[in-house]
Amino acid sequence: MTQKTMIQAITDALRTELRNDENVLVFGEDVAKNGGVFRATEGLYDEFGEERVFDTPLAESGIGGLALGLALQQYRPVMEIQFFGFVFEAMDSVASQLARLRYRSGGVYHAPVTIRSPFGGGVKTPELHADNLEGLFYQCPGLKVVIPSNPYDAKGLLISAIRDNDPVVFLEHMKLYRSFREEVPDNDYTIEIGKANVALEGKDISIITYGAMVRTALKAAEQLKKDKIDCEIIDLRTISPLDVETIVSSVKKTNRAVVVQEAQKQAGIASHVIAEINDRALLYLDAPVGRVNAPDTVFPFAAAEDVWLPNEKDIINKVKETLNF
């Protein structure tokens, strides 16, 4: 056990899988000598060499196509999109090509590709770096979308993503990279993709969220505890596929829910979580499901994030509103 930040846990996962499986390749912009712009691939080029860890020219679509081709040569590519706001350049290669390979070949071919990318607001990046675009990929059958909320989960989920025989979009919230450390086992371990985690047990209300908002929700729950409100927090860990079972059983227990996402309201993950609750547990609800999200504008940047991103207070208010319905 070692105390690690999330970025260190991610490097650890990459190193573990590069050692475990000679077919694992790590590539992207600046990932080799430079170790990635966030140092996620620090030391990997030195340990594994140019054959396994290599830089690509600066072209995201080319990186996605490269990954698909390498997958067809039985490699297990881990491609990096330097910032998730750049993924639009690779939209065809990810959403049309990687996601569809199994279907197009009638199940003969598959794409065991991990698409790693930093995203998430609150760290004052330039424009089109931090955007919460997970909803776009949630709409793509054939892809899985994983968003860890802490170092321990990041390592276990990333190892699972790399071992998965389907393409996995693995989104790393930049605010979580270095904001805290926790115990991360040195050995390899996996966390099942598609399973949510009950981050906090409670009986009064279920807060369902993912990514950096899990931390925000935990802080809100601490405050709410002072008002004798006992929150249960579900960390989705994977947003596609969604762990409907865990969500629904929590709601059936607490009879109230608030869904929290950093992304804009329209067509987000929260919409779908609420629809699933309505489909499966409507009659267990004592109040309409509350929702905390960013407003329906384009994702702003830098100073604009302060007024835009949902925060602890928004969660506290929405929880109280839902309880007082």
Partner: peptide, 23 residues
């Protein structure tokens, strides 16, 4: 690989396959 509909998408995949064959 199956016939490509998206114009040019097979080109980047070709590079991936070719790099894989070389490796």
């Amino acid at each position: 690989v199956m016939p490509q509909i998206i114009i040019g998408a097979q080109c980047t995949q070709t590079t991936g396959i070719a790099l894989g064959l070389k490796k």
